[in-house]
Measured scan of single mutants.
Amino acid sequence: KFNKERVIAIGEIMRLPNLNSLQVVAFINSLRDDPSQSANLLAEAKKLNDAQAP
């Protein structure tokens, strides 16, 4: 279950337009470290993406 959620979360994070490459890598590394947190990490990535919108 967590592996599928992690793959989906990674794909979504990679498509967030307002994150820089270091932020994307940090979120992906966090997902690798704890796949059970996929939903929480994706939500945090989306919040950061929205906050950094031009």
Rank of each mutant, 00 (worst) to 15 (best):
P17Y: 05
K1S: 15
A43S: 13
D50T: 10
E5R: 03
G11Q: 14
A53C: 05
V24M: 09
G11N: 14
S38Q: 07
Q23R: 01
G11R: 11
L22E: 12
Q23K: 01
K46F: 07
S38V: 15
F27A: 02
V25H: 13
L19K: 00
N20D: 12
L16E: 00
A43N: 10
L48F: 04
V24N: 01
Q52C: 08
L19H: 00
A9E: 03
F27G: 00
P35H: 05
P54M: 13
A43R: 10
L42C: 03
S38T: 08
N29F: 13
P35N: 06
V25W: 14
A39F: 13
A9N: 02
A53Q: 09
S30W: 10
S36F: 09
L41R: 06
L48N: 02
D33W: 08
R32N: 15
A26H: 12
I10P: 01
F27D: 00
S21F: 13
L31W: 04
E5P: 03
L42N: 01
R6I: 15
N40G: 07
E12V: 13
V24K: 14
N20F: 10
D33T: 14
S21L: 14
P17Q: 07
D34N: 11
N18D: 02
E5M: 06
R32G: 11
S36N: 06
L19R: 00
L19M: 02
K47W: 09
S38K: 03
I13M: 03
L16N: 01
N29Q: 11
A39R: 10
V25N: 08
V25S: 14
I8W: 11
E5K: 04
L48Q: 05
V24R: 03
E44H: 08
V25C: 07
Q37L: 12
A43C: 06
L16C: 02
L48C: 05
D50R: 08
L41V: 14
R32W: 15
S30D: 05
A45N: 00
V7R: 15
E5S: 04
I28W: 05
M14D: 01
A45E: 01
L48Y: 04
A53N: 13
A45I: 02
N3Q: 06
S36C: 08
K1G: 14
L22W: 06
V24D: 00
N20R: 07
K4L: 05
V7A: 14
F2K: 10
A43K: 10
N40D: 12
D33V: 12
A45R: 00
N49V: 02
L19F: 02
K46L: 08
E44N: 09
V25Y: 12
I10G: 02
K1Y: 11
D34T: 07
P54C: 13
K4P: 15
P35Y: 10
F27L: 05
Q23H: 02
A51H: 07
I10Q: 11
P17E: 06
N3L: 04
L42F: 03
A53G: 12
N49Q: 01
A45H: 01
A53L: 08
N18E: 01
S21E: 12
I10K: 04
L22P: 05
L41I: 14
E5Q: 09
R15K: 14
L16F: 05
M14F: 05
R6H: 13
V7H: 08
G11C: 11
I28E: 03
K4C: 14
E5C: 08
S38D: 04
K47A: 10
N20P: 01
S21T: 15
D50I: 10
Q37W: 06
K1D: 15
K46A: 05
S36T: 05
A53Y: 07
D33C: 08
F2V: 10
P35E: 05
K4M: 04
L42M: 06
V25G: 09
E44T: 08
L19G: 01
K47H: 09
N18C: 04
S38M: 15
P17M: 06
P35F: 10
S30N: 09
F2Y: 14
P17W: 04
D50S: 05
L31R: 00
N49Y: 00
L16W: 02
E44R: 08
L22R: 10
K46E: 04
N40A: 05
I28A: 03
V7M: 13
S38C: 06
F2Q: 08
Q52F: 05
Q37E: 08
D33N: 11
A26L: 09
N18S: 03
E44Q: 14
I10F: 03
F27W: 02
E12M: 12
D33G: 06
L19D: 00
R6M: 15
Q52S: 04
A43H: 09
I10S: 03
P54H: 07
S21W: 15
R15V: 05
V24I: 13
M14C: 11
I10W: 03
K4E: 15
I10C: 08
M14P: 01
I13W: 01
E12S: 07
I8H: 12
I8K: 13
N29I: 09
L16R: 00
Q37I: 08
N18L: 02
N18G: 03
N3H: 14
S30P: 02
L31C: 03
N3I: 06
L48K: 04
F2L: 13
G11P: 01
A26S: 13
A26I: 12
G11D: 09
A45Y: 04
N29R: 06
N49T: 00
E12L: 13
L31Y: 03
P17C: 10
N20T: 14
S36Q: 07
S36E: 12
L22V: 12
P54F: 11
D50K: 09
R32Y: 14
F2W: 08
K1W: 12
L31V: 09
L31P: 00
N40R: 12
V7L: 14
F27Q: 00
P35M: 09
S36L: 08
V25R: 11
I8T: 05
M14G: 05
S30A: 11
Q52D: 02
K47S: 10
P54L: 07
L41T: 09
N40C: 08
S38I: 15
I28L: 13
K47M: 07
L22C: 12
L41M: 10
S21V: 13
Q52Y: 05
P54D: 05
R32K: 14
L16H: 02
I10E: 15
S36W: 06
Q52R: 05
S38Y: 15
F27H: 00
P54Y: 08
D50H: 09
G11Y: 14
I10V: 07
N18R: 02
L41F: 08
P54K: 08
F2G: 08
D34F: 07
A45Q: 00
L19I: 04
P17H: 07
A39M: 14
A51G: 05
A51E: 10
R32A: 06
F2C: 12
S21C: 13
G11A: 14
I28N: 02
V7K: 14
I10D: 01
E12G: 06
K4Y: 10
P54N: 11
V7Q: 14
I28M: 10
K46Y: 10
I10N: 02
A45W: 02
L22K: 11
V25P: 01
L31K: 00
D33S: 08
S36G: 07
S21Q: 10
A43G: 06
L48H: 02
A26C: 13
N40Q: 13
L31M: 07
K1A: 14
A53R: 10
V24A: 05
S38F: 14
A51M: 12
A51W: 10
V24P: 00
F27V: 02
Q37N: 09
M14E: 04
P17L: 07
K1N: 15
P35R: 04
A39S: 11
D33M: 11
S36Y: 09
E44F: 12
A39D: 06
R15I: 06
V24T: 05
L16K: 00
E12Y: 13
Q37A: 13
D34C: 11
D34G: 04
